[in-house]
Amino acid sequence: METLKCTVLHLLVFVQIIRTQAKVASIIVFGDSTVDSGNNNHISTILRSDFGPYGRDFINGQPTGRFSNGRIVTDFISEGFQLKPVIPAYLDSSYGIADFATGVCFASAGTGYDDATSNVLSVMPLQRELQYYKEYQTRLRESLGNEKAEKIIGESLYLISMGTNDFLENYYILPYRSSQYSVEGYQQLLTGIARKLIQDLYNLGARKISLGGVPPMGCLPLERARRILYGSDCIEEYNNVARNFNSKLQDLVNNLSKELPGIQVVFSNPYDMLLKIIKDPHSYGFESTAKACCASGMFEMGYLCNSYSTLTCQDADKYVFWDSFHPTQKTNSILAQNAINNSLAVFL
Rank of each mutant, 00 (worst) to 15 (best):
Y90F: 15
T117C: 13
A116K: 14
Y113C: 08
R128H: 10
A101T: 14
S93C: 08
Q127F: 00
T117M: 08
S94W: 00
Y132I: 02
R128D: 14
G103D: 02
F106K: 06
S108W: 01
F100D: 02
D92S: 11
P88Q: 06
L91F: 09
G110I: 11
A107L: 09
R128W: 03
Y132T: 04
N119T: 07
Q127M: 00
T117V: 10
A109I: 06
G112K: 07
Q127S: 07
L126M: 14
A101H: 00
T102C: 03
I87H: 06
V120H: 01
G112Q: 12
T111C: 11
A89H: 07
T111L: 03
C105Q: 00
V123N: 03
V120G: 02
L130Q: 09
V123G: 05
E135C: 12
P88V: 11
A109M: 03
A107E: 07
G112L: 11
Q131C: 07
T111R: 01
G103Q: 06
C105W: 00
A107V: 04
D99R: 06
T117P: 06
R128G: 00
A89N: 08
A89C: 09
Q127R: 07
G96K: 01
D99L: 06
F100R: 04
N119E: 15
Y133C: 07
L121G: 00
E129L: 02
S122K: 15
I87S: 04
Q131S: 13
K134V: 11
E135N: 15
Y90I: 02
I97F: 04
L130G: 01
V123T: 15
Y133S: 07
A98Y: 10
T117L: 06
S122C: 12
G96E: 04
L126Q: 04
R128Y: 05
V104K: 07
V120W: 01
S122G: 02
Y90E: 11
L121E: 13
Y132H: 15
I97D: 05
G96Y: 06
Y95L: 03
L126K: 04
K134F: 09
